[in-house]
Design a protein around this nucleic acid. Structure first.
Lengths: 135, 135
DNA sequence: GTTGACCCTCCAGTTACTAGAGGGTTTAAA
DNA sequence: TTTAAACCCTCTAGTAACTGGAGGGTCAAC
């Protein structure tokens, strides 16, 4: 199967698939004209990667997950540990974003949003740094 | 004030401050030896940027916010609009992360995490792509 | 005068792609 | 048979916001 068909099946851009080959995530064969040939295995791997990425795993995690998948003697605990670590990263990010959201929403609420220059948002941003947070 | 003192006050790494100058966010003066000199205004701007960044605004937003701050004839609606747009970006990201988190947590829960190879996490990642989601 | 803590610039690397230039191949119609 | 569209290829550079490191000048103290 050629790259554009493959891209449709995997739900990935053609460029991304070339990139995945470049960094060694996949190794499709080549035809005599130099065009890439994707077989079932390649397709499966791409789908696997796409799904992993959509869950937020980074490329390195994907590499590890692919290796674990093809390792028949893996322990599920290894997979679970990787996933848990990733979940922690997500939770951390969620907390940060929720904190940001709360602060920002409060400021937006406080701002009249009219033609006048007075603005609580800018006032907050311009506040001297809290000495508690320094040192 | 020299750059390392300034960095402490602003709560930013020295490298970051140099970077902010390089991209034109700040323009500290220079001493005869070529060392940067930061005055009150520079310090204030750095704190302003640091605070904006901590709320998730990107560098371009920071530039705009700084301009609005120093524009006495600004309309608070301009600031509010910028902040609202940013809030929407945050909400979008939060939704994505929450979706990821839910899926991932479910999979982690389903995985025994023992020495055996059987693993629902890998099984999920290896699932053929949902035809609903394709085309 | 030398040591250590500063400061400087410039270059390269990070993540995960994406855009575009420049050029070969295939397919199908004219 | 030509030719045009629609493919395919590689290679380079750019994105965001820094960060690390090399190589080298400056300053204050002992």
């Amino acid at each position: 199967m050629n790259i554009s068909e493959t891209a449709k099946h995997a739900g990935l851009p053609v460029k991304t698939i070339r990139y995945y080959e470049e960094i060694g995530l996949i190794q499709p064969g080549r035809g005599s004209n130099g065009y890439r040939n994707f077989n079932h295995e390649d397709l499966h791997q791409l789908a696997f990667i796409a799904r992993s990425r959509s869950l937020g795993f980074n490329i390195d995690d994907c590499r590890t997950l692919l290796a674990l998948f093809s390792d028949q003697s893996r322990a599920s605990s290894d997979v679970k540990t990787l996933a848990r670590t990733h979940l922690e990263r997500i939770d951390q990010k969620l907390q940060e974003l929720q904190q940001m959201r709360a602060t920002l929403a409060g400021l937006i609420d406080a701002c009249a949003g009219d033609h006048r220059p007075n603005c609580p948002i800018l006032q907050d941003l311009a506040k001297p740094i809290d000495p508690e947070k320094r040192d």
